[in-house]
Nucleic acid binder design. Structure first.
Length: 589
RNA sequence: GUGCCUGUAGCUCAACUGGAUAGAGCUUCUGACUUCGGAUCAGAAGGUUGGGGGUUCGAAUCCCUCCAGGCACGCCA
């Protein structure tokens, strides 16, 4: 299905060609202000600049060639030379019906589907997940959902930190500090405790530091006892992660942690040495970037002087695996901004090795405390993620108890989870990923304003209308079987086959929903789910305005059926849009 | 020291990547409930986009230069 934007863009390029002008000039975008109509183009301004002509005269020339009477009123020249398009309500009604009948709400699948590995989450074993993991996990999951919906083949990979120096300390702690009873009470908590304590001791005592190093070397040499301890730690941590993922409704296709690549590291270094990309420097194997001015003075060590490998080596092996074995066309790393330099180096090496896959480092800002200082991962008191999520559900439940006490216990639990988790996710996804995130319980869990509960509430209100409508038995769905199954719970359907849009609130709502198909693909341009979140907020807003201005069930035909169609479509846009963000909608709240 | 990121209303954030008079939410103030769920709606107030230059028809956005904060820069991950 074509969007208004793409249809009008076609009309514009036809007109440009007819006027003897370059057909690809300028852009056709949604209007910056409702006063300017629905869409605008700056084509005349761009061309006038190139050719040294008067932009308004040129705009008039273009307008004379535009044949879009089926879609909009006659285009108007305005301002410095903009051309504005205002959609005809009839065209909007037609398009809205088209959306209503289709299963994808107008969103086209991409022409060329790619296989995309998305690397996100990546918690460290032997450490609990904390607030710092929210962004990568929630952002990565949302991008995966959107890419998949657009027709890409997505592989979600959890690159667990399950191998590395910290295991020297964990194993030393296990052997010397472990409290078996505490371990039985709470597996991960005890592992975290011994890790922290060892870390502290090692900081002040070189002998313990050395002992930890020895344990690490034994682990890497496949010492049976140490491998056994390591495996137990990984298993305990995974149990803890799984609980969080269940709460968050996040799923992985692969969980290839760092240990998965352990055996492949020597080959990576050998290959780099053989090809000349890597060289020996001060006893270590190092890659230099002499041709790249930005990296020229920033070499990367891939094998330490003592023969050990580091995480750069692991990441290179990971690139190999994902491209050669998984056949990835693209790899998206949803990893915090501090690792920008690291990934530039990795990507540069991958290019030098001849890989052409599309490698992207999708960065995001830090999580700050109320004092606006960085929340540190290693030491200090981090809020465990599970506690945070449970607290969110608890607070949501308290509000539900106040607002809707007659719901059953099961319903309350279910709704509290959808609202609490949704609120946390939305707080994160609704803002630009690069800006730092100020962590605040109140902000995250506030159920007012531009928040998930506001959107969920719009959905719930629509569902309520249809429950009421069901009593007067509106039936006979006009949607096809697939769509119906997808939307089964809606139950009763409007019967009208045409829309009559009269009130401005109706027209605005309908136009808004026609934009869904324009917004969703845009998210992947720069990996910004916040534009989808902002759009959904506008949908909810438009719906609430419509809801106040236009009675649905009490109105006369044909407005009644027409409005039911709008309601149904708004519900589906909200549900689908929130689903793409990984947020669920309740039927009541 | 070098490089990267960030700086927008009192607060939290947008601005479709160079477009028109910089928009929302929270807060404050004024209105609208025998309601299709008020977790709502309508309206008002709130700005030298960190400062200063420059580029052009047009700048929060691009360039230069300061200021502030953060992050990263060979054997941690």
């Amino acid at each position: 299905m074509q969007t208004f934007q793409s249809l009008l863009a076609k009309k514009l390029s036809d007109a440009l060609r007819a006027a003897g002008l370059p057909a690809a000039a300028g852009e056709l975008t949604p209007a910056s202000d409702p006063r300017f109509g629905d869409y605008q183009t700056n084509a005349a301004l761009v061309l006038a600049k190139q050719r040294g002509e008067n932009p308004r005269v040129l705009a008039a020339k273009i307008v004379a060639q535009i044949e879009a009477g089926d879609l909009c009123e006659s285009p108007a020249v305005a301002g410095a030379g903009f051309i504005n398009f205002t959609l005809r309500p009839g065209a909007v009604a037609e398009k809205t019906m088209e959306l209503s009948r289709g299963g994808r709400l107008g969103v086209a699948e991409v022409k060329s589907s790619r296989r995309i590995v998305i690397d996100f989450g990546s918690p460290n074993v032997a450490k609990p997940m904390h607030v710092g993991h929210i962004r990568s996990t929630v952002l990565g999951d949302a991008l995966a959902r959107i890419a998949q919906f657009l027709g890409h083949e997505v592989i979600r990979d959890n690159h667990l930190g399950d191998w590395g120096t910290q295991f020297g300390m964990v194993i030393y702690g296990w052997k010397n500090l472990l409290d078996r009873q505490a371990l039985q009470r709470n597996l991960l908590a005890e592992i975290v405790r011994i890790y922290k304590e060892t870390n502290q001791q090692a900081a002040s005592d070189p002998k313990i530091r050395e002992a930890c190093r020895q344990e690490l070397i034994k682990l890497q040499a496949d010492d049976r006892e140490n491998v056994d301890i390591w495996k137990q730690c990984v298993a305990f941590s995974m149990q803890d992660f799984e609980r969080v993922y269940k709460l968050l409704d996040v799923h992985y296709d692969l969980q290839c942690g760092e240990s998965f690549y352990h055996d492949r590291l020597p080959d990576v270094v050998e290959r780099l040495l053989k090809s000349g990309v890597g060289e020996i420097s001060e006893g270590a194997v190092v890659v230099f970037f002499r041709d790249n001015p930005e990296l020229a003075d920033k070499p990367l060590i891939v094998r330490k002087r003592d023969g050990g490998f580091n995480y750069a080596t692991t990441d290179l092996a990971t690139v190999d695996y994902r491209i050669n074995d998984l056949k990835a066309d693209a790899i998206w790393y949803v990893v915090g901004a501090p690792q920008i330099l690291h990934f530039r180096q990795i990507f540069d090496i991958a290019r030098r090795e001849g890989y052409t896959a599309d490698l992207r480092h999708i960065t995001f800002g830090s999580i700050l405390g109320e004092d606006r200082k960085l929340m540190k991962t290693r030491s200090g008191e981090n809020v465990p993620l599970r506690d945070l999520l449970e607290e969110a559900c608890k607070r949501a439940r308290k509000i539900i108890e106040e607002k809707n006490p007659h719901l059953s216990e099961d319903e309350k639990t279910d709704i509290a989870q959808k609202i609490g988790i949704g609120a946390v996710k939305y707080a994160d996804l609704s803002q630009y990923r690069m800006t730092d995130y100020v962590f605040s319980w109140d902000k995250m869990l506030s159920l007012q304003g531009n928040t998930a509960p506001y959107l969920q509430n719009a959905y719930v209100r629509i569902r309520s209308i249809f429950r009421k409508a069901g009593e007067s038995a509106i039936a006979t769905p006009l949607w096809d079987v697939d769509t119906q199954a997808d939307h089964e719970e809606t139950g009763h359907r409007p019967v009208a086959t045409t829309l009559t849009l009269a009130d401005s609130a109706e027209i605005n709502l309908a136009k808004r929903m026609c934009q869904f198909a324009e917004i969703v693909p845009q998210v992947l341009n720069d990996f910004r789910p916040n534009i989808l979140a902002n759009y959904l907020f506008e949908v909810a807003n438009s719906f609430h305005t419509f809801y106040e201005a236009c009675p649905v069930l009490k109105s006369e035909e044909p407005a009644r059926s027409s409005r039911l169609i709008l309601c149904d479509l708004a519900a589906r846009v909200l549900k689908q849009g929130l689903d793409l963000l990984g947020i669920k909608v309740p039927e009541k709240m």
